[in-house]
Every structure is written in C-alpha cells, then in structure tokens.
Design a protein around this nucleic acid. Sequence first.
DNA 1: GTACATACTGACACGGTTGTCAATAGTAAT
DNA 2: ATTACTATTGACAACCGTGTCAGTATGTAC
Lengths: 234, 234
Amino acid sequence: MSSAAKSTPGEGQGEATVQIERKREVKRIRRSADEARRLILDAAEERLAAQGPEGIRLQDIARDVGISHPAILHHFESREGLVRALIARTSTQLRDKMLTALQSKHNGEDVVEANELISNVFETLSDRGTARLLSWMLLTGRSPENSTSGALVTEIADELHLRRKEDAAKNAKAAPEREDTLFMAILTANAAFGDAIIGRELAAEAGLDQAGVARFRAWFAKLLHDHAGDVNKS
Amino acid sequence: MSSAAKSTPGEGQGEATVQIERKREVKRIRRSADEARRLILDAAEERLAAQGPEGIRLQDIARDVGISHPAILHHFESREGLVRALIARTSTQLRDKMLTALQSKHNGEDVVEANELISNVFETLSDRGTARLLSWMLLTGRSPENSTSGALVTEIADELHLRRKEDAAKNAKAAPEREDTLFMAILTANAAFGDAIIGRELAAEAGLDQAGVARFRAWFAKLLHDHAGDVNKS
DNA sequence: GTACATACTGACACGGTTGTCAATAGTAAT
DNA sequence: ATTACTATTGACAACCGTGTCAGTATGTAC
C-alpha cells in the first residue's frame, strides 16, 4: 500500500516535451545545470496544466524527470523558487510569442491585417497551459507587479493603434480614439483568457464542435474588424 | 502558544456574511445544522476568494467561524465534501442570479434593453469570488458535467435570441442568425470570466482607474449593441 | 592520473493538515 | 426531570510534502 507501486500514473499521453530518461539501474545521469532546470520546469509545467495547482509536488515532478526530489531543491532552492522560476519562464515565453505575433504582420503584407493579428494574439493567449498557469498565479496572488504580461497590453495596444492610424490616413478616415483601441486589446485579452479556462466547457454545453469554436473565433475577429471600420465611418 | 490566542486574524474587513460569535469561555454555542453549514460555507467561500485554492484549510475556516475543525468534518464528512458543497452552492447561486438578471428585464420596460441585460450578465459573472471559485474548480478538474453553469449559456442565448427576434420583427428587420446570438453570449461569458481573473491586473497595467473600467464595460455593451443592430442592417 | 567542483542521492527530521474517537453539552419532547 | 438526539469539542493518530544533510558519482581542468 505504499506509494512506490504506482509510478507516474497515466502520464503516457504527454507531448515529447519531457524526455523521460529511463534511469539505468546503477549509472547515474548527470546533466548540465541548465538542462536539468529545463527538464524540471517542463515537467512542472505539464503537471500544472494537467492537474492544476495541487499537481505541483516535488516528488511527483522528480519522478517525471527521473531524478530524486532533493535534486529539484538543489536547482531551485525551494518549492517556491521553482514556482517563481516557472512563472518567470512562462511569462517571458508568452511575451516573446506575443511580440513575434505582432512583428510578423508588420513587416511585409498589408496593414489592414489587424484582425488576423487579433486572431494570432487570441490563439496565443488562449493556450491552455499558459492561461492556466497565469490564472493560477493570479488566483494565488503572486507577482503583483511582475513582468507577468509586463506592459504587454499597452505595447500591443500601441502597436495596434499605430496601424489603425495608418489605415485611417490611407483611406482618409478620421483617426480612431486611443482608448477605443486599448479597449479592443483588453477585450481580446479578457476573452482569450476566459476562453482558455472555461472555453472548453462552454463550447461543450452550447453544443459547439471544433468547427464551431473556429467559427466563434472568426466571428470575434470579424466583430472587432467591423468595429474598427465602423468607428471611423460614423 | 496554542491556537486559541490569535482568534480570527485580520478578518474584520469582511462583509457581515460571517457572524463571528465570540465564544464565551465556557458556554458552547449550538447552531442548527443548516445554520452551521451556511456559516462554514460562507467562511470557506471567503477564504477561497481571498487566498485562492490553498486557502481552504479546515482549521482556518473553523477558526473563522469560531468552531473547532472536527465540527466541519461532522457537517461535511470530509474536506472534499466541503469543497463539493461549496461548488454546488456557488453554482446554483450563480444560476439564480443569472436567471433573475434575465427575468428582470423581460417583464416590464422595453425589449431593446438587451445591452443592459448584457451588462447585468457581465457584472454578475465577473464577480470576483464566483469566477475565482469556478475557475479554480475548472483548473483542478472537478465537476465535468455538473450543474456548474448547467445549460445556462444556452438558456441565456435562447432568451437573448428571443428578444432579438422580437426586436427585429418590431422594426421590420431581418431576423438574426441563431449562432450569432449564441456567439454574443459566449463572448460575454468569456470576457466576463477573463475580466474577473485578470481584469484587475490588466486595468492597472493599462493605467485605467475605476472610471476607466466602467467605460470599458460600457464600451463593450455598446459594441455588442451596435453589432446586434448592424447584423440586421446589412 | 589527480584534484576539484558540483549534480545527484537516500535517509531522515519537521511541520502542517486531514481524519478519528470518546466524551461533553445544548435543546426539545415526553 | 428524565430522556433522546446531535452539535460540538479536545486529544490523538496517520499521512504527506518540504527541506536538510552527509555522502557519492561524474565531468572537467591541470
């Protein structure tokens, strides 16, 4: 009835993210500090996404990686340290993804692709793991002024606003209000976040299949797009 | 250094929900089972909202209420039982609030108040405690098919759709698509939920004060309102 | 090869939390 | 008053997760 019997229960369906190194009986595997930290964070992230906050237990994570739990303490001095590191990594990852999503459309192509940009942002933000991590972080009240999303929303709003102004100038329309653009960004963030958390249940309840969800996102993008147009018209 | 010394630390700012009965040295207070359950659930809810998932500890909650923790076990057989009861209660409360929010506008007054209705729904859903509880519930993977929000979204969408059709008929406009209405409901739910969780941080980051937040909600309501109009026009 | 730094381990200590149990004390009915 | 019922309690037991420690093994520099 001990705990040793059930090793890593039902963890087989995971991605290839966590390279489970089968520990040979005697040979001890020695990784570089960075590598070890990466593996540990990967495992922790997976646990968190799969089981929620209470899924982050040093022993479990250690088992996932194939090390002993003191090794984790060695790399991140404490559980809290691990959590902070995880938050920090996820935050910067999110930030990077967001910024690239922004850049990608500004180089070539038209400028009018703002709605497609919105879609990108939505997709990125509504990533299950990320949103779960972030929301759990907020729920437990960590990182009040952290680099969480930094001044991300503001940056995005600025970027968006820039394009709207360009677009307005090009078509000889009145320039949109700044706050209007900001609100669009905030709405997108809120909606994406909510989608990541309750989207699944909501869709199931409403009888939406995957195609339906896709239609919803397209609908949302169009909604914002139309709004961006209408504001200038009237 | 026992626990009796520091009774109910820093809980003074709370509402009048939890009637803290100062336990006289010897007199033992005896409540009815229902009353006790209610008090315990209130305290648990407050803890959860204030400190997140890990804030639900039997001893703490017991201290808040002014009882000993075995009393909690007596009323809800286990911690898990308490959690389930809390979820159940919050769910039905949410449901009730939603339905009343719906009814209130359908009786008297005009029918066009759909956007105000949306505002109501938004406000209700974005209640901090409720959303936190729900999201934590989802995060920890409880109640997959529960009465969580039941067929709530569907119901609301139906109700909304009904009014839109009435409105369309009255103004001799084309009837809107059903899915369009559903999407409006889903977007509202997502946005309200996201707002409840990251809204505060988002607003702070964007430099929005309370008035700004209010403007955002109004903006959102108007966005949906305009959309409802536009769909018919074109 | 030898020495050094450090990733890693097993065993254990510690604190905190849930849950059990026998006993106590309000409350209502007879 | 006596009785029956049960809300409530203090003390205790069992468990679990974090963190410590002294020691081991592996890679690297010389």
